[in-house]
Computed example of a mutant assay.
Amino acid sequence: MTQRSRNSTALGLALGVAASLAGLAGCGGEAPRRERPLKPLVLKEQTSSVAQGTGGYVVTWAGVISNPNRWHFGENVAATVVGKDASGKEVVRMQQPLDAVPPWGALKFTGQATAASAPVDVKVSFRPAHWRRAARIPSAFVPFPVSGANTEKLGNGTYLVTGAVGNPYAKAATSLVVTALLRDKDGRLIGGGSTYVDDVRAGSPRRFVLTVDSLSGGAQVARTDIAARTWGSSARPYEELAMSGAVPPSTVKPRTPPFARDRGYQAMPVDSRP
């Protein structure tokens, strides 16, 4: 074999090895994967109401923010609420820190502030979120169940919302926020309120009571949506619960004795049609 032949053979082997390594990297997924850009949070709904109070006018608002990203929490979100009077003068401004928005989920929130004069226009906006990749798959973040919910209209026009919130996780939830959104017969958001419950353990639902003082446009309540979430601008409380694992749907053994014999069955008639 000549020197030229040796060089040609060596070059061919080198090219073949390089091509094989490139193919293995592509098939094995070792090459870095480019992630899609994250989408911003979306303010899907908002409403506000103004009522006369002892120290001025009480401005109440409610809204729903959705997270279109499947694998990331939206953290350190803050809402800015601005109210203006009939002349366009700003009479109330408040920045409200919001809780972390779960992946592929929504955040229901409410708030309240006092103004010296009555605003006729109230707008809610929010600053962009800081993104944090979820430590578990989205299905691991099981929602907190709400039971025994009831909405009652009191004599002074206030709505009283009661119920109980449970914990589907093995670890106790130190603090949860319960938010109730009131809707009219067309499903339109007309008001809401929030409260807190502490030390919620699996199998021991905690009762909550909250009030909604005023509604937008004097509408009638037809439905109440209630949701519970972890408290705080960070996703860590929710992730710690999810990492502890969800408890089985039922952990209570049957207390009644088994049937002495099978109840049997009834055979279906045979179809004798031609």
Rank of each mutant, 00 (worst) to 15 (best):
N76H: 01
A118K: 13
R255K: 15
R33W: 07
G29Y: 04
T60R: 14
T179Y: 12
I65G: 06
K153A: 15
A149H: 12
V92E: 04
S5R: 15
A31V: 10
R93K: 13
T114L: 15
S87R: 12
W231I: 01
F109V: 08
G217R: 02
L215A: 08
V92I: 14
V200T: 09
V101M: 03
A202H: 14
G26Q: 13
V142K: 04
P269K: 04
G53A: 12
S139L: 06
P254W: 09
S117P: 06
V59S: 02
P258K: 15
D184T: 09
R70M: 05
P68C: 02
S175W: 13
K185W: 14
V146I: 12
T195E: 10
A25K: 05
A260M: 07
C27I: 14
W71Y: 05
G155M: 15
P269Q: 03
H72F: 10
V92H: 00
S139Y: 05
P32T: 01
T114H: 03
A135I: 00
V81R: 04
G105H: 00
K185V: 11
D121M: 09
T230H: 08
W131A: 00
D213M: 11
A246H: 05
V178L: 07
E240W: 10
V221P: 05
S20I: 14
S272K: 13
D121V: 02
L176F: 02
K123D: 12
E90H: 01
A113C: 12
L24V: 12
L176Q: 05
L215G: 06
K39D: 08
G218P: 10
W104N: 13
D121E: 13
P103D: 09
A19Q: 10
F144M: 05
A242N: 05
Y57S: 11
G163R: 05
P68V: 04
T174V: 03
K253R: 13
P248L: 10
A113S: 15
A172Y: 04
G192A: 01
P168Y: 00
L189M: 05
A31G: 10
S234N: 07
A140L: 02
V146M: 08
P32K: 03
G163W: 08
E35G: 07
R4Q: 14
S272N: 13
Y196N: 13
E239T: 01
D271F: 00
W104S: 14
A86M: 11
R207Y: 06
P68H: 06
A170S: 14
D85Q: 04
W131Q: 00
R132D: 05
T60G: 01
D186N: 11
T47Y: 01
K44Q: 10
R206W: 03
A86T: 12
G55E: 15
V59H: 03
E240C: 06
P145F: 08
R36P: 04
